[in-house]
Structures are given as structure tokens and as C-alpha cells.
């Protein structure tokens, strides 16, 4: 019922920002489809009854707080003038 084609696998790699090394793609495809085939039983599950057991957690207020120890968290070598140094995000058009 569920099947991951080589094209879907490529799309998933893109979504997950992964790039499988050569040789692993075929094995991964086989493994994933084997797992999906075994667990497809899940598609037959019916809507459950309402339960009274409450496990929802009240979310705390989202309050930004500064972390005083940024250099320790990120590593001194990756900071420049107190800012995080990364590769260019936007590329210039040729």
C-alpha cells in the first residue's frame, strides 16, 4: 500500500537536507519499503474514543532570554565580533 519510489526518496532527502552516499540509496529504499510494508497495519486503525486522561502539558510563556555564555555554547572560533560567522546564505546570480 505504501511505497517509496526512487523519486520520492530523492524528495525526502531534499526535505531532510540529507544526501545519501552512492550505494546506500538502494539499500535505504529496500529497508524503508520493508518497514512500511510490515507496519502498514496502522492504516486500519479506527478513530479512538475520547479519553478523560489528560496528558497535555500547559505551555509556558515564550519569553526570549539572553544566554550569557554564547561563546562557550558556540565555540570561540565561530564568533566574529560577537556574531556567528556562517557561509553566505544568498548567492549572487551569474
Amino acid at each position: 500500500m505504501f511505497n517509496i519510489s526512487p523519486e520520492i526518496l530523492k524528495h525526502l532527502e531534499e526535505l531532510a537536507q540529507l544526501e545519501l552516499p552512492e550505494g546506500l540509496e538502494e539499500k535505504m529504499l529496500q529497508d524503508l519499503n520493508h518497514i512500511l510494508g510490515t507496519f502498514q497495519i496502522i492504516s486500519r486503525v479506527e478513530v479512538p474514543p475520547e479519553t478523560t486522561t489528560a496528558f497535555s502539558s500547559p505551555l509556558r510563556e515564550d519569553e526570549p532570554k539572553s544566554f550569557e555564555n554564547a561563546s562557550q555554547l558556540l565555540g570561540q572560533s565561530r564568533l566574529q565580533d560577537g556574531l556567528l560567522k556562517v557561509k553566505p546564505v544568498l548567492e549572487e546570480e551569474d
Binding site: 526518496l9 524528495h11 525526502l12 526535505l15 531532510a16 540529507l18 545519501l20 535505504m28 524503508l32 512500511l36
Partner: peptide, 15 residues
């Protein structure tokens, strides 16, 4: 490999 497998499976389950 196992982490990649689970990330891909999870991405599929949420796609």
C-alpha cells in the same frame, strides 16, 4: 545510517 533511515521514515510519515 540508522539516524538517516529514521529521519527519512519520519519525513515520509509527515509528508
Amino acid at each position: 545510517e540508522e539516524v538517516k533511515r529514521r529521519i527519512l521514515l519520519g519525513s515520509f510519515a509527515l509528508s
